[in-house]
Design a binder for these strands. Structure first.
Lengths: 240, 240
DNA sequence: CGTTGACTTGAACGATATCAAACAGGGTGG
DNA sequence: CCACCCTGTTTGATATCGTTCAAGTCAACG
């Protein structure tokens, strides 16, 4: 038990994850049912429409939630980073597919045991609820992007969103706050699936921003934002 | 008090709204803080980014939630029908704009009083939570539509969605289950804002379905679905 | 009737998709 | 160490779908 406590005390995402709201002894109870899981990229966590057997906090790495049409067209409907919660309490199965994008470190909880704790621990469900409201806000933000933004605006918004998330979980490669530098967790194909575009269009927009000196690339995954002002302007208002 | 109970007992949406989960005496407490509000179309319920002062159940009518870009481009990010809940418990303000689309009958609750009840009534927050998970599912379903479906598929999906909602709240005009007939609550402009298209494209797609004998129109708002099979096929797979 | 606003229809244009080829980096086997 | 793929990415040419701009229709209403 003391050991469990210790584990959570040293957890990198402890204060930002849903468990952050818990009291010390409650954390211990949660910790007692926690199991750690390390997954390589491309691992399926949840099949579309399948039953879920566990919940999880993401300790590190990135997970994508996707939906697919009959003919194979795919859309990423959610991107989860360190400290995000995976799973739908009190729901039997998932309406989407969840898959690791990078190496992922999960802190998992058996479904039944977790739901029992949620009922027993005062305020825990409240925290999960508020977390879901945040997810809903992000989803709706993304609906605006998907329905109304141009390709250039979409890519700019995406880069900024990733930059912010990477920053907040301390994964930035650089230390100049004005010129963030980070590794893109997604491939071009995945970015396209997230933005409702094709690979080629994503690539062209990124190339254009490179030519325009808004960003710089090292290899294909490491991005530096050179001109934050213009990137933010490009997010809502495509220049001609 | 008895009067309040009575009011809820005869409520059209009582069993499907979030209050449907409550015990008899709990309904009475909720009823005690309820106020009814009748609004004409085009009335703003919530300003983007403004503070919310009340929650509400929709008793009848349709409400749209929208987000707008700096230059005026708009996206409907949620469409709420009778029995849907409006508001974000324990959040100070709203990240989107809510506006009536038709005549709307609301059953409203003061924010503070409602939140107190949520804390006091066992299982009430749970119900609100599950309701929010449903909203999240719808939002993600719509992300797939916005990002990956063609104009024709979008319009077909929209008609089917409205048909289903109208049916479930008993607003269908016809009684043949194979050939639903109903009034569109949205104008062409609103449909366009919901689907991420222009008015003209929406109009053309509807005209095409009319020529193809998949639907029939009376005036501009009343729709009959003539061929449910083909409408459902058109939803996911655009014919050439 | 004439006006207004919502909708439809048509023609031209443009953004993004599609198709196709070239390119780059990283691993493998020789 | 190099030749060879393999996969992901970039770039180019063309096609297509949906937008834009512009009329035209229609019903409601003064």
């Amino acid at each position: 038990m003391a050991e469990h406590l210790l584990r959570c005390d040293s957890c990198a995402v402890r204060h930002r994850a849903v468990c952050g709201a818990l009291e010390r002894d409650e954390v211990a109870r949660l910790s007692a049912i926690a199991h750690h899981k390390l997954l390589p990229p491309g691992q399926v966590i949840l099949h579309d429409n399948a039953e879920m057997h566990y919940f999880a906090n993401i300790v590190s790495g990135v997970v994508k939630l996707t939906k697919t049409l009959a003919d194979g067209r795919q859309q990423i409907v959610g991107l989860q980073f360190a400290s995000d919660f995976l799973g739908r309490p009190f729901r039997a199965n998932s309406p989407y597919h969840a898959e690791t994008v990078t190496d992922v470190h999960l802190c998992t909880y058996d479904k039944g045991q977790f739901e029992r704790l949620v009922k027993e621990i005062e305020g825990f469900e409240h925290r999960l609820f508020q977390n879901t409201l945040d997810e809903l806000d992000s989803a709706r933000e993304w609906m605006l992007l998907l329905g109304r933004k141009s390709a250039g605006e979409k890519v700019a918004s995406f880069l900024l969103m990733v930059a912010r998330r990477m920053e907040s979980i301390g994964c930035k490669v650089s230390d100049d706050p004005e010129r963030p530098r980070f590794n893109l967790p997604l491939s071009r194909a995945e970015i396209a699936d997230f933005l409702g575009l094709t690979i080629e269009t994503v690539s062209r927009q990124i190339s254009r921003m490179k030519v325009d000196k808004i960003i710089a690339l090292e290899g294909t995954r490491t991005i530096s934002i050179l001109d934050m002002q213009r990137l933010m302007a490009a997010m809502e208002q495509e220049r001609d």
